[in-house]
């Protein structure tokens, strides 16, 4: 039995279907990503699984139990980091994590250890209001994990961070399921999901579009590789296995399912200089499934 089982989840806000017949399972110890643009229904799905919201229909089993209505037995076994900061006002980082540690009946020293693990030891005496965006997220993640929960939910932990802070956080996040913990993360960054997640669910307008490992999703793409050749299309007629050939600002973009053959032909033509090869990304998957460019 998986850590999370969701079937037929549906929830509407007025006319808008925020979540529309979503079903999936998350295995024990899995790093599971829910990705999609803003308003795709990621947060609502997460909140229903956590037990903060009651779905209009559908079933949720979290660690084999129903999270709604508020299930006190379940609460010590899960950790949550919400999108909003959710801190006690005017407490320092150390007081904050000590407070959460105490609410979960965990010794304060464990809180101190987490402060160290998320790299906030020199900010321990800084009030939460004075922490930077990245430090905020780190503290919030530490507070979600201080009681060593079996399942942890992270709702857009890297949103609104600069690229450097995001990458720093990835190092921290990637180790979270090492000890067999299940991690569920929402993000609207495709690259993040590719790096961190064992499997990703792509959500758009409340519907579950795809669910698989990032590699498998990309592999399943029909236009799997793009090769950009500087210059114009003259002389490229004989190149085999070309699905699409398009003149762009950077040169000619060739899309092919057999990039090896294409590259051989280009070598024969002496056009290898300055070329770039891009295999598919989750952005491409999104484009293919929805017919729309992915915009985070």
């Amino acid at each position: 039995m998986g850590a999370i089982e969701v079937s037929g989840l549906t929830m509407a806000y007025g006319e808008v279907r925020a979540v529309d017949d979503v079903s999936f399972e998350v295995a024990d110890g899995e790093f599971f990503g829910i990705i999609g643009p803003n308003g795709a229904g990621k947060t609502t799905t997460l909140e229903i699984i956590e037990g903060l919201r009651r779905p209009d229909s559908g079933e949720v089993l979290l660690l084999g139990e129903r999270p709604w209505p508020r299930n006190p037995g379940l609460l010590p076994r899960i950790g949550v980091q919400l999108q909003a900061s959710s801190f006690f006002e005017r407490l320092t980082a150390r007081e904050q994590i000590h407070t959460f540690a105490s609410l979960y009946d965990v010794p304060r020293t464990v809180g101190d250890e987490w402060l160290e693990r998320v790299g906030l030891v020199d900010k321990a005496d800084t009030r939460v209001e004075d922490l930077s965006g990245g430090q905020h997220k780190r503290l919030s993640i530490a507070c979600a994990l201080v009681h060593d929960p079996e399942v942890v939910f992270l709702d857009e932990p890297t949103a609104a961070l600069d690229p450097q802070a995001r990458r720093n956080l990835w190092d921290l996040l990637s180790g979270l399921n090492d000890s067999g913990r299940t991690v569920v993360l929402t993000t609207h960054y495709m690259d993040e999901a590719e790096v961190l997640c064992d499997r990703v669910a792509i959500l758009d307008q409340g519907r579950l579009l795809q669910l698989d490992s990032p590699q498998a999703l990309v592999r399943g793409l029909r236009r799997s590789t793009r090769i950009t050749v500087p210059g114009d299309a003259a002389g490229l007629d004989g190149v085999p296995h070309v699905e699409r050939l398009e003149q762009t600002r950077d040169g000619v973009e060739i899309t092919s399912a057999q990039p090896g053959a294409v590259l051989d032909a280009l070598a024969g033509l002496g056009r290898l200089h300055g070329i770039s090869v891009t295999s598919g990304t989750l952005e491409d998957v999104f484009l293919e499934v929805t017919g729309r460019e992915y915009r985070a």
């Binding site: 903060l52 609460l75 949550v80 909003a84």
Partner: peptide, 17 residues
């Protein structure tokens, strides 16, 4: 303040009555 910051939600998911 607690509602705006999300702390109320967070405490709803903590083992505190």
């Amino acid at each position: 303040g607690w509602r705006t910051s999300g702390l109320l939600r967070r405490l709803q998911l903590a083992p505190v009555s």
